[in-house]
Nucleic acid binder design. Structure first.
Length: 555
RNA sequence: GUCCCAGUAGCUCAGUUGGAUAGAGCAACAGCCUUCUAAGCUGUGGGUCGCAGGUUCGAAUCCUGCUUGGGACGCCA
């Protein structure tokens, strides 16, 4: 499936044997052989720095070592066409690139599976993301987390990991009581009463909508009722309303979850179990009428309250129980996608996990840095409280789902993102998503033309006819796709997929302008190029699918 | 004050677990549509990789200090 990786593996092995044959190092001294793809084409298909690494062990100059290795290489076994020594001791390999011939048939055959590998080997990974409190609209920052988490899951799944997507619903505790109070205020306001919003209430427009809806459905009915009963009803009503809206917004954003986990379910016994376990370990103590976790034993900079002096839990306590639950479900790794404002929370969570007796490397947090929104050259401040935040829904209809998703996964997650609304809105070449989609649409048009002109789509084409520089560049890039995805998956860097897809589109456009695909005078070459175009189309589409962006047939 | 993230071309950002002459898009400039989609292509200019030390054959990358911007430091969530 991954022909490029096979070529690399064989070459690495052959280098290793050459080192041994040249008697430069003993087998156990042999460092890991690293092949890199040189930036300069003139430096070959692969390069290795092994000679420099061996300089100490072999006690020879790197250039001499490189020469020794070169003389002991089996060229035919490793499909090498030429070897050069360059710079301080790099060995550059120019490959026969036979594998490129197999590439197109492989891609056409595997089609929508091209790019999938089993590098994850079925490792069970759970990704928990978004997990917004059901107290307001999803805004820009959440959208970035949603896009990141979703694409991360996509590439993990494509690389043979066993992935589960989970959303943690904070449907218990203080913020949900505040939601009930906010709904109450909006309801009474809808009835024309002059009530002020609670101090810690939620001021979003959506809550106003809830108040209106309750008024429409029930009129004055809830105003008359007992307050506790009323608040209890408003709490459930508001929660269901908010959750439904969040789920719909996410679905429209093409983000779906396998599991929606309710915080409330922890209150049956899981919190007690977790607390008991922490107590058994001796990591819990009482002070000032509160119950504390001695998280400083595990690297936190201060101890943390688990149960407040009024007897209620802090946010941390159920969250510890939640993480214990997740770990007990047998995942090899749980990845949490959190906003930048929660990064200070990591040490205490990690401490709790250690206190519970789990290995801390099973727990990973990906921090999504802030999104700064710009409009008319001015920075807009986002805040849930002021209700001025740009909602995801608004953004999707404004800018388009493809552009939003693409934009968010273009940047590395741990770097802040400036989102220019005017730029994202503009349906022009400034927007990179069109560039990639256009490449796909272009190929589709070509293939349609090919069919109209009666060119055959047979797979019996001759790949050796693809010899121009642009063709070879395209082929090599196509061959890198599975490795790129696997790499992005293992390093948890979805933005590498966006980068790849952009590079491939760029090569396609360049090829398109330099060479004509459909040429009646050269039927055999045309056949080969049509096959190449089909392979590029498949790869672009698969890449875009991983990002969650559509691949239009025409634009 | 402590901790986390970032500082790379005018702007927004990449930079392959330390590699060769640091890249892309946008912006600027000059070209390319009787030819499969010009939402495209080709070329040019543009850099003290925040600053200063250190580690080594080699540092944008690793270490230390400093500096700038953002964020977090609650018996809120």
């Amino acid at each position: 499936m991954n022909v490029l990786a096979q070529t690399e593996d064989i070459l690495k092995q052959e280098i290793g044997e050459a080192v041994l044959k040249a008697d430069l190092a003993a087998k156990e001294e042999l460092p890991q052989i690293i092949l890199e793809k040189p930036k300069e084409k003139a430096h070959g298909d692969f390069a290795t720095n092994i000679a420099m690494q061996l300089a100490r062990i072999a006690k020879k100059a790197p250039k001499q070592i490189a020469k020794d290795i070169m003389e002991h290489l089996d060229h035919s076994k490793a499909s090498i066409s030429k070897v050069e020594i360059a710079g301080p001791g790099f060995i550059n390999f120019f490959m026969k690139n036979d594998y490129l011939g197999e590439l197109i048939p492989t891609i056409l055959k595997t089609d929508e599976n091209y790019g999938k590998t089993n590098t994850g080997q079925g490792e069970k990974v759970q990704v928990e993301f978004v997990s917004v409190n059901p107290t307001g609209d999803l805004h820009l920052g959440h959208a970035r987390g949603a896009a990141f988490g979703d694409v991360l899951c996509n590439i993990l799944a494509a690389s043979g990991y066993d992935v589960e997507r989970e959303y943690y619903i904070n449907d218990a505790g203080n913020q949900i009581d505040q939601l009930a109070l906010s709904v109450e205020a909006r309801y009474l306001q809808a009835l024309g009463e002059n009530v002020t919003m609670p101090e810690d209430g939620y001021h979003g427009d959506d809550i106003i909508g809830i108040g209106e809806k309750i008024k429409e459905a029930y009129g004055q009915e809830w105003k008359e009722k007992d307050r506790a009963e009323r608040l209890s009803f408003f709490k459930e009503y508001g929660l269901q309303y908010e959750l439904k809206k969040i789920e719909e917004d996410l679905a429209d954003f093409r983000v779906h979850f396998d599991n929606w986990f309710s915080e409330r379910t922890l209150y049956q016994d899981k919190i007690h179990d977790a607390l008991a376990k922490l107590k058994d370990g001796g990591f819990v103590y009482e002070k000032d009428d509160a119950t504390w976790l001695r998280s400083t034993d595990f690297g936190d900079d201060k101890d943390r309250v688990l149960i407040k002096s009024d007897g209620s839990y802090t946010y941390l306590m159920p969250d510890i129980a939640y993480h214990q639950d997740k770990l007990e479900r047998g995942f090899d790794k749980i990845i949490n996608v959190w906003g930048a404002d929660h990064h200070g929370y990591i040490p205490r969570m990690r401490a709790a996990i250690l206190a519970l007796g789990y290995a801390s490397d099973k727990f990973e947090v990906q921090i999504i840095q802030m999104v700064n929104l710009f409009e008319n050259g001015e920075k807009l401040r986002m805040s849930k409280r002021t209700g001025k935040a740009v909602a995801l829904r608004e953004l999707m209809s404004d800018v388009g789902i493809d552009a939003v998703r693409y934009f968010f996964v273009t940047r590395s997650n741990d770097s802040q993102l400036d989102f220019d609304l005017d730029l994202a809105r503009s349906q022009s070449n400034e927007n990179p998503v069109y560039y990639v989609q256009y490449a796909h649409a272009r190929i589709c048009t070509m293939l349609k033309q090919a069919a109209n002109k009666g060119f055959s789509f047979e797979q019996d084409m001759d790949p050796t006819l693809l010899t121009t520089e642009k063709e070879v560049d395209l082929l090599k890039k196509l061959g890198e796709f599975p490795k790129t995805i696997a790499d992005a998956a293992s390093k948890h860097t979805p933005h590498k997929v966006t980068q790849y897809v952009f590079d491939l589109a760029s090569l396609l456009h360049s090829f398109y302008n330099a060479e004509k695909v459909l040429d009646e005078d050269q039927p055999e070459r045309t056949k080969a190029r049509i096959a190449l175009m089909k392979a590029v189309r498949i790869t672009l589409r698969n890449g875009l699918r991983l990002i969650g962006v559509t691949a239009p047939k025409k634009m």
